[in-house]
Amino acid sequence: MAQAETLPSMDYMALVRRKRLYGGLILIVFIALMASGFDVADARNAGGFWNGITHVFDFPKEILSEAARDWRNLPGFLWQFVPSLIETLNIAAVSTLFGSGLAVIFALLSTRGLALWPRLTPVFRRAMDIMRAMPEIVIALVLIFLLGGGPVPAMIAIAFHTTGALGKLFSEVAENADLKPVEGLQSVGANWLQRMFLGVLPQVAPNWSSYALLRFEINIRASAILGFVGSGGIGYDLKTSLQWGQGKYDEVVAIFLLLFLTISVVDHFSDRARARLVKGGKAA
């Protein structure tokens, strides 16, 4: 009897000890990885970390002092860069629209229970994996080579990645949809399109829109970066001003300000809209 009472507690202590050992080992490996990783990155960087850390504020100070000196130019520059900002936003918006539209199709075709061709679901899933894995810059640069500059290559590149990223999330949402409405519609002779449109879409629309809004936030950033690599929009203006260097730092500050304000404002409103969508109108 006494043995039976001690056994579980001994087991428990052994378990705890083993867990602690594993935890400690993982911690040591993690710290070693971080430390050696930092060393490697530091060694392969042009300027070292300890050298650079003292100069982190040099560049901000330089551009801010120039902007402070020529502060009268700022409103004009802010106004001047609005068209490119709109282009950047347009790229993000259109690619989110196209991407989420395609993602809906891919998601429905790759969700168990909803797919039009159940056998092909793995094919669509793999396709989405590949689209998701493709960094935007790859497609953008190749398309710039083929189509020339302009916003269209960036738009296609972001839409491509968006399709993969949203398709996976959409399909996870659709997997949890109630199938009863779909069956009901099927019993009255609705075709696949009608079943999806009337049976599934109303259930998943709030979550899907919430994910699409989140993607829009991400895509604004992506579109600004792609502009920097050479595809129009405010990123391109930033690059040209930076290449000019001193004398145009007031422009750089204006662009930084515009980007920062836009991203913050969009984040804020989309945060609220998403809370309303997912929690059903009660959130502020």
Binding site: F38, V40, A41, D42, R44, N45, A46, G47, G48, F49, G52, I53, H55, V56, D58, F59, P60, R221, A224, I225, F228, G235, L238, L242, F256, L259, F260, I263, S264, D267
Partner: peptide, 21 residues
């Protein structure tokens, strides 16, 4: 979050130079 990776990249590469760090 709002300043965004692009701006951070520009500012940081002035201090640390190009590279993985």
């Amino acid at each position: 979050r709002g300043v965004d990776g692009l701006i951070w990249t520009v500012i940081l590469s002035r201090a640390f130079g190009p590279g993985p760090l």
